[in-house]
Each structure stands twice: as structure tokens, then as C-alpha cells.
Design a protein around this nucleic acid. Structure first.
Lengths: 197, 197
DNA sequence: AGGCATATGTAATCGATGATTACTTATGTG
DNA sequence: CACATAAGTAATCATCGATTACATATGCCT
């Protein structure tokens, strides 16, 4: 638990691997993530990584869980900046969701790449449950409004990330957010109404 | 061009590889697709596959292009079954999009997995351009309504595929489609109005 | 028919990867 | 201080994408 950097033992290899994996995924995406490359970057043998992560998927799952934490933080940030009306708070959730996706496209992609993750991981589920959309999962069926709200923000996020809106959105983050906020505002009220009944 | 199955030459190896790759992607997904396994399944040496596809990505791209053809067919089918009113045809596009996604989740996933594809492939772009949502790309910026329409159908498709609506949707295809059709119908008119101005 | 360019396939090989195993070294607790 | 355990190494396997040099079949041209 203490930091021993004298020799041999790394100190906190697990965290170091997580850091390196996060850095790599942000920069290059999940596809090219390699345990060996991570191990080398942290100056450790390939096999050592498997002492802390039984799988490549286990590492990816941990990173995805961290992604949910960041997404949650983004939503809370937008909520804290918004007025304290129900409608403003409702919109802030969507804006935070989209803002996170635009800022962390590779993390967003990983979080919705079921093949690369262990979806039954408890820590992963716990972090996801902090997101309003996810927290309603399991608590009975979602209403029409809830499905639409999630669908809109998720679809817009994904399509924007993948460049399908590149002719329709400014190049910089602030411009994208402003335009997407307008887009969502166009249906916000009706979705909110559907979501409440 | 003729079918010679006497010996050595395969006859139509390229198509055989495409068939096998499509079968594998449908059954297992893109992640585990392997050129070697495909080659073995078609009784051919691994290197032979590279005669017809310079890359693994080139093979994946061809399959994705086929996916767009199938998605287009699904949309046309829903349109042909729908009434000949503007609103009914508008809704049929969305229903066809979602129906395809539910029927071919792995193909749908591949078509929106930019890392695995060569997005600049001409054949791929040509097939995609037959989908109403994609055909508006490049023809000036999309309006608010168009972005919302695409976002809704795409987001609902993806979330449904990934099981995030599993408490809210029936287990069978027909049940899912019925519910999702209701969901989309709840905002169809307002989106259509936005999309037309 | 004969000959030859080309299309198509094989076999061998490279480097990287995920994963496992047996072994070694450090840690810290009774 | 001894010893169980945690944490790392080194070696190895099978698989993968990709390239190369080589072999064989096809079909066109005269």
C-alpha cells in the first residue's frame, strides 16, 4: 500500500496500468489497446499485468466504469450551472450527456461497446447507475418519454462524434454544443411533458 | 468468371469469403472476425484471402456496404407497406431503420464502427447514400428537424440493441417493433413539422 | 495447337498479441 | 527470524494480420 520505488516492486502497478490504458484509449481508441504495450509503457513485464487484471476485458471494464464517473460529473456540472427550474435541470442532463460524448468520444464509444466489456461487473453497474438514464433501468419499464429522451441525446451524441453532422455543426466544441443545445431545445418541452406523465 | 470446381482454383473465392464473413459477423460480431478463420472455413490458405482483400478492413468495409443495402431494402419494404401519405412514408423510414437495426444488430454495429471501416470507400459511400438520412449529408447543413429525426431513430436503435430497454420492450421482434413504433409516433408529427421548414 | 501473360492459389515466415505457466524476489506478520 | 503471501519475471503457446517467394491454372493471341 505504501509507495516503494526502491526496486523491483512497482508501488501501484494497477493504478499505473489504469492510467496508461486511459491515456491510450483517449488518444487512440479501444481497438488498438494492448496489454503488452501498456505493460511496456509502465516498464513492467507483460505477465505482470495479468496479476491485476485477469483479462483484457477486465481492464477495459474498469476504464469504462471510470468513463461513467466522468459522464456523471459532466451532467452534475451542467446541472449546477443551470437554473433551478425543473425544465432547466431536465435540459442540463441532456446537455451534460452530449458534452461528455463530444469531449470523450473514445470513452463514450467504449462505454457502449458491449463486446469489449463485462456488463455484469458490479463496479461498472454501480457507476452507470449514477447516470439518470441508467438509473431508471431495472426500476420498472421506462415510459415513452424516457425512452425518447435517452434516444435523442444518445443518437445525437453518436452521430455527432462519428462526423455525420460535420456539415451541420461548427468545428469547435463550444459551437457544437451551442447548436446541439438548440436542436434539443426544439423538442425539450414536448419530451419533458411525455416524460412526466 | 466460369465456375471451375475441378481443382485448385476456387471458382469465386471473393464471394465465398464475403459470404463466410457475413455469416460470422451475424453470428459472432465483428470483434472476433478473423481472415484466417474465414479462409479455413472456405478451405483456402490464409494468404489467398489477401489476393482479394488487401486488408481486413477492406473485407469489413465490403460487409458494411452490404449492410447498407439491406438497411435500404428494409426501409423500402416498410415504405411499400405504408399508406401513401407524406406522414406515413415519413414514419416508414424510421420504422425501417429501427427494424433493420433490431434484425441485424451486428451489421448495424459494424456500419457505425468507423475504426473498423474505410469510410472513404466509394462503394460504401454509394450504398450509404441510398439511405434517406445519409443522402442529406453533403447537401448542405441538416436542419434541426433532420438531425432530431436521425438522432431519435439511431439512438433508440442502439439502446434497444444493447439491451438498455430490456425492461421496457417485449422479447420478440414484433413486440419490440410495435412498442418502438408507438414511441416514435409520440414525436413523429412534431419532428415532421420541424423537418419540413 | 502452342505459348505466354496473368489471375489465383500455396507455403513459409514475420512481428505482435492475449494468455498461461513455472519460477523468483520482495513484503510484512506472528 | 522464518515463512506465507503478494508481486514481479521469463519463457512459452496459439492465433492473428500481413508479406513474400513461389507454384499452378486460365484463357487469350497468334
Amino acid at each position: 500500500m505504501n509507495k516503494r520505488n526502491k526496486s523491483y516492486h512497482h508501488g501501484d502497478l494497477k493504478q499505473a496500468l489504469l492510467d496508461e490504458a486511459l491515456r491510450h484509449i483517449r488518444a487512440e481508441g479501444i481497438e488498438s489497446l494492448s496489454l503488452r504495450a501498456c505493460s511496456k509503457a509502465v516498464q513492467v513485464s507483460p505477465g505482470a499485468a495479468f496479476r491485476h487484471f485477469k483479462d483484457k476485458r477486465e481492464l477495459a471494464t474498469a476504464i469504462a466504469a471510470h468513463g461513467y464517473r466522468l459522464m456523471c460529473a459532466a451532467i452534475l456540472e451542467y446541472q449546477s450551472k443551470a437554473e433551478d427550474t425543473e425544465m432547466a435541470q431536465f435540459r442540463a442532463v441532456g446537455e451534460g450527456y452530449v458534452a461528455f460524448a463530444l469531449n470523450e468520444p473514445n470513452l463514450f464509444h467504449l462505454m457502449f461497446a458491449p463486446g469489449q466489456l463485462d456488463s455484469s461487473d458490479e463496479h461498472l453497474k454501480a457507476q452507470a447507475a449514477k447516470i439518470p438514464m441508467f438509473s431508471r433501468e431495472g426500476s420498472g419499464p421506462l415510459g415513452v418519454g424516457d425512452m425518447l429522451v435517452w434516444g435523442v441525446v444518445h443518437g445525437l451524441s453518436e452521430l455527432a462524434i462519428q462526423g455525420h453532422f460535420k456539415d451541420s455543426l461548427p468545428g469547435d466544441f463550444d459551437g457544437k454544443m451551442e447548436k446541439l443545445t438548440q436542436v434539443m431545445a426544439a423538442v425539450g418541452p414536448s419530451l419533458r411533458a411525455l416524460s412526466q406523465k
